[in-house]
């Protein structure tokens, strides 16, 4: 029964269909707002659906020199990883998240899967652009995973210590993290967690691959990098995976830093959660995207070491010492 319920959560709510609808809606809105910031009209909100529908009607082409199995598996792996991930995201007041033990750690392991899928696809495609994209993806992943780990640790340690009555401890259950914050105030407003929150805001464009960190897929340098050889349903699957990832990383951010609820009604809480995700996306992805250019890979790496890692480290040390 539990297994069945788990599968339902991964396929319908909050993973799978729900996450896809929200992810595509956010992507459409993101494109629209970005267009407005650049004084363009922008595509309609349903554009991601139309793009996917079009891609699904196309033929699947596999380069002769590609490693066929890895090439075909890569988008599936990326998509599946994110579909599972989405089920772990608690929607405060609506859904508690799948398996409430150590799911923060599970998420930390699952979050890099789309990037790994991208690397897999890029290297399997046997295109030199894919190879460059692969190495860039790897570098940028190393750069943003370090601050992410520190952010997760500082959240877990702060709440673990509070639950343990000030003693050393760490709490990796997202549900407990959410519940503690609902009782004691959001972490995003806690002065010692503000650096970690800022680091998370910088982590978001890094993991989503938008400017200034869209280096692995840089159009004018490596022509979409790992995605270059993909087309048709496989490319659509990459887009779907990316939409799910949008939902996951935004939802995780909201769950860790602003998990408050506004009413007892689940529908209002759901809307409130989505609204917070939307604000997070506009602030950290859309506005940043339309206000910056692209870093070179070494500059991006240096930036990640100097700014978000230091910010996250700052929070971690504060949590540890206080």
């Amino acid at each position: 029964m539990d297994t069945l319920l788990g599968i339902l959560h991964m396929c319908i709510f909050p993973g799978g269909i729900f996450a896809l609808i929200i992810g595509f809606f956010f992507k459409g809105l993101d494109r629209r707002v970005e267009a407005r910031l650049q004084r363009r009209v922008g595509p309609p909100l349903v554009q991601p659906w139309l793009d996917t529908a079009k891609l699904l009607t196309k033929e699947t082409l596999i380069p002769n020199t590609a490693c066929k199995e890895a090439f075909l598996m890569a988008p599936v792996v990326g998509f599946a990883g994110m579909a599972v991930c989405a089920a772990f995201i608690p929607v405060p007041g609506v859904f508690d998240g799948l398996y409430n033990m150590g799911d923060l750690l599970v998420l930390f392991y699952l979050l890099p899967i789309p990037a790994i899928a991208m690397m897999m696809g890029g290297s399997a495609s046997s295109s030199p652009f894919g190879a460059v994209g692969f190495s860039r993806e790897m570098i940028i992943m190393l750069a943003y995973e370090t601050p992410l780990l520190m952010i997760l640790l500082s959240v877990a340690m702060l709440i673990g210590k509070a639950l343990n009555g000030g003693d050393w401890g760490a709490e990796f259950s997202l549900l407990k993290i959410v519940e503690w914050q609902q009782a004691n105030g959001s972490l995003g407003l806690n002065p010692i967690m503000i650096p970690a929150f800022l680091a998370y805001l910088i982590f978001l464009p890094g993991t989503m691959g938008v400017p200034p960190f869209d280096i692995p897929e840089a159009e004018t340098e490596v022509v979409e990098g790992p995605l270059l050889e993909y087309g048709g349903p496989l490319l659509a699957l990459f887009h779907v995976g990316s939409a799910l990832k949008t939902f996951v990383v935004l939802g995780l951010g909201v769950a860790m830093f602003f998990p408050g609820t506004i009413a007892d009604s689940w529908i209002l809480n759901l809307l409130w959660f989505l609204f917070k995700c939307l604000v997070l996306m506009l602030v950290s992805l859309t506005v940043v995207k339309s206000a910056t250019g692209r870093y070179r890979i070494d500059q991006a790496f240096r930036f990640f070491v100097l700014v978000p890692t230091m910010l996250a480290l700052c929070s971690l040390l504060l949590v540890w010492l206080i």
Binding site: E34, L37, Q38, R39, R40, P211, P212, D214, A218, E219, T220, S290, A291, T292, G293, R294
Partner: peptide
């Protein structure tokens, strides 16, 4: 600006 990935500046 376009090559440097700065789409907004390109549009501007």
């Amino acid at each position: 600006a376009h090559i440097a990935g700065f789409k907004s500046l390109f549009m501007h």
